[in-house]
Amino acid sequence: MDSNLAAIVDEALAAADGAANLGDLSALSARYLGKKSALAAAKKALGQLEPAERKAAGQAINEARERIEAAFAARKTLLASAERAVQLEGERLDLTEIYGEVRRGHYHLVTQARDRLEDVFVGMGFRVAEGPEVETAWYNFEALNIPDWHPARGSFDTIFVNLGEPEEVMLRSHTSPVQIRTMENEEPPIYIVAPGRTFRTDAADATHLPAFNQIEGLVVDRGITMGDLAGTIDEFVHAFFGGDVQSRLRPSYFPFTEPSAEFDISRADGSWLELGGCGMVHPNVLRNCGIDPDVWQGFAFGFGIDRLAVMRYELDDIRELVNNDVRFLEQF
């Protein structure tokens, strides 16, 4: 390599090292490697050399170019990395600096309890039936074997509405009207649960609401027995409350079932908690819905949904379920 070429290389290498940024480097790269560079001129001049010298000279120029290119490439990597580092540092964020609130909403406690109950009963082979909240005396009382003079009518503390004759239309005082509507419209076998809102003239206090939620079950099939009722309650209690919780039936009275029972569940301290009412569907009720009680037998049961939510979370005031205070709703 002639001294001239060596000087070009030295100068180019020094220039590359001295480039402060990628822009300068790019300009210098053009100066030392571009079409107007000394190297390009030297290459052009090769033609004037003797063929014998030409090969060696050409080789020297290529080597010089490679050295310069390598130097520029190395410098470029260095500068690019430095510049990226500066840029990234400039983008630094404190990820714990959060404005506003990002949150999922919340299902109402009653919905949570109701969905869970529905899921358990669906798993046991039931469908979920629903019905209107404003009902006629037929569905709320008469078809359920509660004639107008019956003492049990008074115990329902019914809220009536100003439609039809006096006391002809009411807010349903239980979910049992759904039993009648289902039996009127469907042929047995019937396996349903009917969750929904019910109403009574109970002034709102820590343990009462005039509007509350119940769930009702109805089975009508051939050969259904009271043993089936007790077993179904037991299976539900195990699935919903846990395998170690026991259930029992006690004699009771409802006009629409015969025999009738209350059902209790066992508590950890050995005592029993009354959960709901149940019984074998009264033959009159089946007849009222056009079902022959000599062919079909059935059972029904019902209990409160709100109370399950109250028990589960040990709420000290059931009114929280209808106050809809966001500070309450967002706890669950």
Binding site: R127, P189, Y191, V219, G231
Partner: peptide, 15 residues
């Protein structure tokens, strides 16, 4: 009532 043996109905429909 407590002496009645608990059974489960044999309904065949899926819930």
């Amino acid at each position: 009532y407590e002496n009645i043996i608990k059974t489960v109905p044999k309904g065949t429909d899926a819930g």
